[in-house]
């Protein structure tokens, strides 16, 4: 029987079942000739596995189902965090070199709200690194030793980062006069923003956002293809066994709460700043001379959606955590 047909038959089974049995099942199918009755038997077996899940039966691969659910929760929080980072960068871009900076230096309220945003950003980043590091190491190890196809996907974040660095280098080259591009001014004067410079900045935004999206999708794909119940790490001559999905859950909660705190702080900050600088709010101080109002509400909306997605993801994964 052709490999493609065997692979198709396997795909009929639930994903969690495949995580647990696909490899040995495929090895068995390769060993012998399959009769038409065997094919029917496999189809019935796939239906039976789906029915077991549907009926909520206790199955030996229940742990796999639960761990898959937990892994999806972590991926949702990770993707939400990346979305939040993009929105946060847009906020920094809005504030940087604007009339809001002197106000924040003079007024305690906006400064405190901004401090909360900064603390939230650091806490969320540390939590993502703490929870994601064992998982990341394990995924890379597996990609190197078992599934080398994943290495191609793992290259995506590196390529995206390299593209961003090169683009920023290109912009620095223009600013320093080393590179000359027709229609692009090395130094932008206040009140003037040539079309070439706008396009240059739009290009940066495109490279950053598309890189973030592509990297998140690539990480999602690789992590969701790597099933790990437990991983062992060597540190300081000691061996440490870790249930990495369960371990990453607490940092995911911290990340989500930090995102919520940053969202609230951004709302308070916006209220305080724009009530004192209504001309900025109603003006066009966003990147590419876009409306400040539109830019700010866009940022807050993305932050709110990401925070909500992370919290809903955690609620969905909580039952899986207790079950494992």
């Amino acid at each position: 029987m052709p490999r493609s047909v065997r692979a198709w038959l396997l795909r009929l089974y639930p994903a969690a079942w495949r995580e647990r049995y696909a490899e040995e099942f495929a090895a068995m199918l390769e060993q012998g000739m399959l009769s038409p009755l065997d094919v029917v038997d496999i189809l019935l077996g796939a239906c039976d596995a789906h029915l077991q899940l549907f009926n909520g039966e206790d199955v030996s691969w229940r742990l796999v189902v639960m761990l898959n659910k937990l892994r999806t929760t972590l991926l949702i929080v990770f993707a939400a965090f990346i979305g939040f980072v993009v929105a946060g960068m847009a906020l920094v871009n809005l504030v940087d070199d604007s009339l809001m900076v002197p106000l924040m230096k003079a007024e305690a309220g906006p400064a405190l709200a901004w401090l909360f945003i900064q603390i939230g950003a650091v806490v969320a980043l540390l939590a993502v690194v703490l929870g994601g590091l064992p998982l990341g190491i394990t995924v890379i190890r597996r990609a190197l030793s078992v599934d080398r196809r994943n290495l191609r996907w793992l290259m995506v974040p590196l390529v995206a980062f390299l593209a961003l660095v090169l683009y920023i280098g290109f912009m620095f080259g223009i600013a320093s006069g080393l590179i000359q591009v027709a229609g692009v001014s090395p130094a932008v004067q206040p009140g003037s923003f040539p079309l070439g410079n706008r396009l240059l900045l739009a290009g940066l935004m495109f490279v950053f956002i598309s890189g973030a999206i592509a990297s998140t999708l690539a990480v999602w794909k690789v992590v969701s293809r790597t099933y790990v119940e437990q991983a062992t790490f060597q540190a300081g001559g000691r061996s440490l066994s870790l249930k990495i999905y369960q371990f990453a859950f607490a940092p995911a909660v911290v990340t989500s709460l930090a995102m919520l705190v940053m969202l609230i702080a951004t709302l308070i900050w916006g209220g305080l700043v724009f009530s004192q600088l209504p001309q900025v709010f109603s003006g066009a101080y966003g990147p590419l001379l876009m409306s400040t109002r539109l830019w700010y509400f866009g940022i807050v909306t993305i932050m709110a959606v990401c925070s909500l997605a992370a919290i809903l993801g955690l609620v969905r994964g909580r039952s899986a955590l207790t079950a494992t």
């Binding site: 647990r20 049995y21 099942f25 065997d38 496999i42 189809l43 077996g45 039976d48 199955v59 030996s60």
Partner: peptide, 14 residues
């Protein structure tokens, strides 16, 4: 059949 075998194996494991 392979489907029956692994259906039974998973239940015996459980």
């Amino acid at each position: 059949g392979p489907g029956t075998l692994y259906g039974a194996i998973s239940r015996l494991e459980q």
